[in-house]
Design a protein around this nucleic acid. Structure first.
Lengths: 118, 118
DNA sequence: CTTAGTGTACGATGTGCATAGTACACCATT
DNA sequence: AATGGTGTACTATGCACATCGTACACTAAG
């Protein structure tokens, strides 16, 4: 695991977990790695790992129980909302860039189809 | 102009100029704003503005002449390469996210088409 | 030559990120 | 009660970002 030096590590790890939760790879209620374990597996400092869980809890994606650990929220509606949000963001960002670059919709779709078939 | 607190300002301003250069909104050879002017118009510090031009020069997108100013490169091939690069990045990022979220290609294209027609 | 505008180069300060280390509080298991 | 795993809190350090302020070097135009 290597990190983009221009983005805070806690954000990059948080995004990873977010995706896992949105896709169901980490199902509702599942126990997440302890802060210390996450730190080890991601090669980051325990304090940074703690930050990740704090931020995830702020957005309602996980619940932390002192002495027990951190768990994926059981609020499936919240997770569904996250998934839609991520999809919308991806689409919006893509369309914005394509428009800025003056690429025609047809050309953009062709490029996407090409990339998907690799 | 407001900035994402999680990304260095110089990078955000640099990306803006990059896009302008790639799209031809700032044509080859055109004089860019002086460091002090850029700082004013972007509400940033002159030192940060200088950093923007230094990074742009590193990537060969502009040329700086002491006492004269900073200019968009006249290397049109370099600019064309940049444009392709940005497009490829956008496509790759979009496809990656869509795949991660388990969205079908058909659905993804539908969302893009919808977004484009707004 | 003088002036104004330009890029360049410092030092100093405040903030946030990331790290290291330590200590404490809570919970389940034994 | 004792232990191990957990989250939490705090101090300290080093670094990059971003700001402010100042000074200097170069160029073009008057």
């Amino acid at each position: 695991m290597q990190y983009d030096a221009n983005i805070p590590i806690w954000l990059q790890v948080m995004t990873m977990l977010q995706t896992d939760i949105a896709t169901g790879q980490r199902p509702p209620g599942e126990k997440l790695p302890s802060g210390r374990d996450l730190a080890l597996s991601c090669s980051i400092n325990p304090n940074t790992a703690a930050r990740v869980y704090q931020e995830l809890e702020k957005t309602g994606l996980c619940v932390t129980r002192r002495g027990l650990g951190t768990f994926v929220t059981e609020d499936t509606a919240r997770i569904a909302r996250l998934r839609e949000e991520l999809a919308r963001q991806a689409v919006a960002q893509f369309v914005k860039t394509v428009k800025e670059l003056g690429i025609s919709p047809q050309e953009a779709l062709r490029m996407v189809t090409e990339e998907e078939n690799e």
